[in-house]
């Protein structure tokens, strides 16, 4: 069953189209990634789904409710973690969570139980009574994750949840996201422009220039890139290049240092390479295609270089 359904969504700001006819479905329980460079239309789409923006045309449904005509119903079904921190620095961790629970009309006893439970899950029980302004970036993110899920939403929206965090904190935040998802059983809809983070998704939609240009499982997307890259260094690269090109009829590129060749089934090719070469082999390296390669393949550009920062 589709918990999110989007059909032909269009939204423009000041005559510039940010989202141009986007359609997709997200199944219940899925982790769905929305990938694209800055300015591709990710945040606009998420804001429409969260009822913060009205689309110019098209439809969006979350948990069976219409984002346009039933915004209050949709809001009860979703939890959010935005790009920027939206905690109150002058309140404690406990007070921020309590504020949230009361806004979602939760009872006093349930509120207390859930606060204890969620703080425990994100490892902030001992910071419960501390003001949020004393927290590190990673701790704030964890508290926001706890807050986003405390009212047991069906869908958790994460808009660039690790933006501005250092690599170590980023990976710990992802651990918490996955741990929470496992425990709460919610659907996750996330945007990111860190390609490697999208690996955790069950399915990925790649968006560029307001269009979805691909939507599939990460492994299937990677399979669209035909082949792996093998880097090889030999005692005589010129001779090795000639031998490989003659025996396997594939194009060999010279890289510094050594050679690079694009083949299908790289693991199986390496032993054959060893047999075929008369030169000594110094080093071999196999590189599987990444989502970054997929993105370059589909759009012809690197995800970090494209677009501007307009969100």
């Amino acid at each position: 069953m589709a918990i999110i359904r989007v059909e032909n969504l269009v939204k423009s700001y000041n005559g510039k189209e940010a989202v141009r006819g986007v359609s997709f479905d997200v199944k219940e329980g899925e982790t769905f990634g929305f990938l694209g460079p800055n300015g591709a239309g990710k945040t606009t789409t998420i804001n429409i789904l969260c009822t913060l923006l009205m689309p110019d045309s098209g439809y969006a449904f979350v948990d069976g409710y219409d984002c346009i005509t039933q915004p209050h119903r949709v809001r009860s079904s979703i939890g959010l973690v935005f790009q920027e921190i939206t905690l109150d620095n002058e309140l404690t961790a406990y007070e921020n969570l309590k504020f949230h629970c009361y806004m979602y009309n939760m009872g006093k006893r349930v509120t207390e139980e859930r606060i204890d439970e969620m703080l425990e899950t994100v490892g902030l029980s001992d910071r419960r009574e501390d003001l949020v302004k004393t927290f590190s970036g990673g701790m704030k993110r964890r508290l926001e994750l706890a807050r986003g899920l405390i009212h047991r939403p069906k869908v958790l929206f994460l808009d660039e949840p690790t933006l501005g965090l250092d690599p170590q904190t980023r990976s710990s935040v992802w651990d918490f996201i996955m741990k929470l998802k496992e425990k709460e059983g919610n659907t996750v809809f996330m945007t990111t422009h860190y390609m490697e983070e999208a690996e955790v998704c069950d399915r990925i939609a790649i968006i560029d220039g307001g269009h979805i240009i691909a939507c599939a499982r990460p492994d299937d997307l990677k399979r669209t890139i035909r082949g792996d890259t093998i880097y090889v260094r030999t005692t005589d690269d010129d001779r090795a290049q000639k031998e490989i090109e003659e025996k396997f009829r594939i194009k060999v590129r010279k890289v510094e240092p050594g050679l690079a060749l694009l083949v299908e089934g790289g693991e199986k090719f390496i032993p054959r390479l060893f047999e075929a070469l008369s030169t000594g082999i110094v080093a071999v390296n196999l590189k599987k295609p990444t989502l970054e390669d997929v993105f370059i393949h589909l759009t012809g550009k690197h995800i970090r270089d494209t677009g501007n920062t307009g969100n």
Binding site: C50, L52, H72, F82, D88
Partner: peptide, 14 residues
């Protein structure tokens, strides 16, 4: 300016 308004605006209260 500090984002907290969004926390209120996405909650189900009117």
């Amino acid at each position: 300016e500090f984002g907290f308004m969004r926390e209120m605006l996405v909650s189900p209260v009117s």
